[in-house]
Design a protein around this nucleic acid. Structure first.
Lengths: 211, 211
DNA sequence: CTACAAAACGACCGACCGTTCGTAAATATA
DNA sequence: TATATTTACGAACGGTCGGTCGTTTTGTAG
């Protein structure tokens, strides 16, 4: 290990592997991910991967971390710029759809893909994905509850129900993207939540107009 | 071939294989499906499968047919009993969620799983899945349009938007099922669409109460 | 009973999988 | 420069995969 703060060699390849593995996993699936393909794509040896992770499963868990970090950076962080309440909830929805439209990941959404892949496969990975989903839903529910407390949404709005609706529209958008095109389906997801929020907001003009 | 109408041996094993393959595919994925496992589960030889389908891909396409037939029988057919219009749209949503709750398929929803699995994998299977999804969305949109024409929904309701919302809630329900339990998540999906339909219906009492 | 065709089988193939292990190169410390 | 440690490598292993082929069983028709 170096004494200064520079990235040592191992850490550089480690993050390069994770980045590449995330890309491949969103296409081939987290389980369908092939260590040979990851290694070949980076020009490193397959056996070298086992110096960083003791097994394929350990690498898969690290990929989940990588996806979470990317999601936090590209979706959650952007939304924190919006003022708390209904506008922040909308910002999350919007930047999430923008993330899909930007096609950062060739396979659409890592978490959606992984959830359906491990739906019926108990184990460490499914538990981890479940925890991530619970976190995410709690985050959305918290945003909705905040909007109610601020008086920006009608008092009879259920934060959990609104979070569920928001998540539903996002998931469906990425599912239909390959069929209808990401722009079309993300547009539908935007319009649907926009209309719904305007309908349950105390001040319908609080949201920006949809272009 | 027999001269009477009885099922000959080949057809019986053929349908038994498809049934078993559908079960396994919803867990391991349509691509992760193993011919050896299918054969072993039925006590037949793997090589015998190639007498019915020339390749794994051909079997996979047949499994899609099988899933479609099951879906039509367990979801669409039930809904046709409801009167046309908003009540039929609701019946589709309700029987679909009941199908999930009944846990007929151990992996949740075959189509949802398959869509996310093949999201970024062009080819015959993805094209087929895309066609199925297009059919399904057209079906939902038609139901919504019918409800508008009958005057049961406000005239400014977009049939496509309503269909998208309905599909979203269903997909998200099956995605979250392993985390929160199918009953909880299907309940949320029911409540969400029920509220929405009551809000946009010309006569809010047209739908049955939610128990 | 014989003849024939549909159906199923067992053995085998090459390819790829995740994993192990002994060794060599690269980089740090002294 | 010499040493120690991290990092990466090539070769090989057992196992599973989809797929092929020749043979045998099964069920019907004549």
């Amino acid at each position: 290990m170096t004494q200064d703060g520079r990235l040592i060699r191992g850490e550089r390849t480690r993050s390069a592997v994770l980045e590449q593995a995330l890309l491949l996993a969103t296409v081939a699936g987290l389980d369908g991910l092939s260590l040979s393909q990851v290694a070949d794509a980076l020009g490193v040896s397959k056996s070298g991967l086992f110096a960083h992770w003791r097994s394929k499963e350990a690498l898969q868990l690290a990929v989940v971390d990588q996806a979470r970090a990317q999601w936090t950076d590209r979706v959650v962080r952007l939304a924190r710029a919006a003022p708390a309440g209904v506008r922040r909830l909308w910002a999350v929805h919007d930047s999430r759809l923008a993330f899909y439209e930007a096609k950062v990941l060739p396979g659409g959404c890592f978490f959606a893909n992984a959830h359906f892949e491990f739906n019926a496969r108990p184990g460490v990975i499914r538990d981890r994905l479940a925890a991530e989903l619970a976190d995410w839903m709690a985050f959305l529910t918290g945003l909705a509850a905040e909007a109610v407390e601020l008086g920006e949404l009608r008092a009879d709005v259920s934060p959990g129900g609104l979070a569920y609706l928001t998540e539903s529209l996002g998931v469906c958008a990425v599912m239909q993207a390959p069929v209808l095109g990401a722009e079309t389906t993300c547009g539908q997801a935007r319009r649907a939540l926009h209309e719904h929020l305007r309908a349950v907001a105390t001040d319908p003009t609080i949201l920006p107009e949809l272009t």
